[in-house]
C-alpha cells in the first residue's frame, strides 16, 4: 500500500481580533485543529465528519496548501502543500460545496476549456474525460448554459467534473452534497464510487449527511473541537460512544417488564418488550436468559442509528475537551 496523505501532529490556530468597547480591539486565539494525525492510502475513500466549526474545512485547506499549519507536518502525494502548492495543484482536485471554481458568466463548456489549458490536460485525455463525465454526470444538456443559470445540483455536477478533469490522484470534497436533492445526491455517490473504482482516485469527503458516508466510504474520521475522536471502519463507529442495540422480543404471553443483567427494559407493550444493551455485547446470553423464563414467539435486533451514535460521540468528547472551570 502507498500512503498518499500523511498528517502528523498538525495544528492550526487563528488570531481573531474582536472589538471590545469603542476603540479597543483584543486579539483572541482560536484553535481550529489540534494534534491531528492520520494516513490515507492510495485509493481509499474516507469520510470526514464532525459538527459545524469542528475544523473540517481548515483541514482540507491545509491539505491543498491554501493554509499553512501552525504546527506539525503534512505531505500529500509526496509534496508539502503550502510550499509546493502549484505543483500539488496539478495532482489534486478540490470541491468546496459552497464555492465554485467555474466561471459564473461563461457556459460550462468554456470553463472546462479554460481548465484544460490551466492544467495542460492532453487533448485525447480531455476528450475521454469529457465524454465520461458527460455520461455519468449527465452534463451534456448543460454544457452551453452559463454557470449562473445552473441549479445548485447542476452546478455541483459541473464543479465535480471540473475538479476531476486533470485526473488528480486525490480529490477533496468539502460538503459536496449540501443542498442537493435525493436524486442528485445518489447520482453523485454513484459517480464517486465509479471514479474511485476505475481510476483508483483517493477521495476525502467531508459531509453532514451520514448517508454519504454509509454509501461510499469504507473509513470514517470523526473530528470534534479540532481533535480527531474516531478513525476507523463504519462498523466500529457503532460500538463507540456508548452506542446501544435494541432487542425486541415478542413473548407468547404478556409479562411484567423483564429484569435481566446487562440489559435495560425500555418499553413494554402487551407481549412485546424492548431491551436496550451495549452495542459491543453479544445478544446470545440475553436471549438465552429470556428463553429460560418465558416462551418466546419472535425476536429481532435493531442496530444503533448511526446518527444517534455520532450525536452521542460528540457529546462525550465535548465533555472531555471542555476547558476547566475558570478560577480567579
Amino acid at each position: 500500500m502507498v500512503s498518499v496523505i500523511k498528517v502528523e501532529g498538525v495544528g492550526r490556530d487563528f488570531t481573531v481580533r474582536k472589538k471590545v468597547g469603542r476603540l479597543r480591539r483584543n486579539a483572541f486565539v482560536v484553535t481550529a485543529v489540534t494534534d491531528l494525525s492520520f494516513v490515507v492510502q492510495r485509493g481509499e475513500m474516507v469520510g470526514y465528519i464532525g459538527p459545524n466549526g469542528a475544523g473540517k474545512s481548515t483541514t482540507i485547506k491545509m491539505l491543498t496548501g491554501i493554509l499553512v499549519p501552525s504546527t506539525g507536518e503534512l505531505t500529500v502525494a509526496g509534496l508539502t502543500p503550502s510550499v509546493e502548492r502549484t505543483e500539488l495543484a496539478r495532482k489534486i482536485g478540490v470541491v468546496f460545496g459552497q464555492r465554485t471554481t467555474l466561471w459564473w458568466d461563461l457556459p460550462l463548456r468554456d470553463s472546462f476549456e479554460l481548465l484544460r489549458r490551466i492544467y495542460r490536460v492532453p487533448d485525447p485525455r480531455f476528450r475521454t474525460n469529457m465524454r465520461t463525465f458527460s455520461d455519468l454526470l449527465d452534463l451534456g444538456p448543460l454544457l452551453d448554459t452559463p454557470v449562473r443559470q445552473l441549479s445548485l445540483g447542476q452546478r455541483m455536477r459541473g464543479d465535480i467534473a471540473a475538479a476531476l478533469l486533470h485526473d488528480p490522484e486525490v480529490v477533496y470534497l468539502d460538503e459536496p452534497t449540501i443542498g442537493l436533492d435525493v436524486v442528485s445526491k445518489s447520482n453523485l455517490r454513484d459517480f464517486l464510487r465509479e471514479t474511485n473504482r476505475e481510476r483508483g482516485t483517493t477521495v476525502l469527503l467531508t459531509t453532514h449527511d451520514l448517508d454519504d458516508i454509509e454509501q461510499i466510504c469504507s473509513r470514517v474520521m470523526v473530528i470534534d473541537h479540532g481533535r480527531l475522536v474516531y478513525d476507523g471502519g463504519l462498523t466500529g463507529l457503532h460500538q463507540l460512544g456508548g452506542a446501544r442495540r435494541t432487542l425486541v422480543v415478542d413473548l407468547v404471553e404478556p409479562a411484567a417488564a423483564l429484569e435481566l443483567p446487562g440489559a435495560e427494559t425500555v418499553r413494554v407493550e402487551g407481549p412485546r418488550q424492548w431491551l436496550s444493551f451495549p452495542a459491543d455485547a453479544s445478544a446470545a446470553p440475553l436471549i438465552a436468559d429470556i428463553a429460560e423464563r418465558h416462551e418466546v414467539a419472535d425476536l429481532s435486533i435493531r442496530e444503533p442509528d448511526i446518527e444517534a451514535v455520532i450525536k452521542q460521540l460528540y457529546t462525550n468528547t465535548s465533555a472531555w475537551s471542555s476547558p476547566p472551570p475558570f478560577v480567579e
Binding site: 468546496f96 464555492r99 471554481t101
Partner: peptide, 13 residues
Amino acid sequence: RSGDVALDLHRPV
C-alpha cells in the same frame, strides 16, 4: 469578500 479567492490562489496560474 466571499472567500472564493482562495480557490483562485490554488490554481497553477
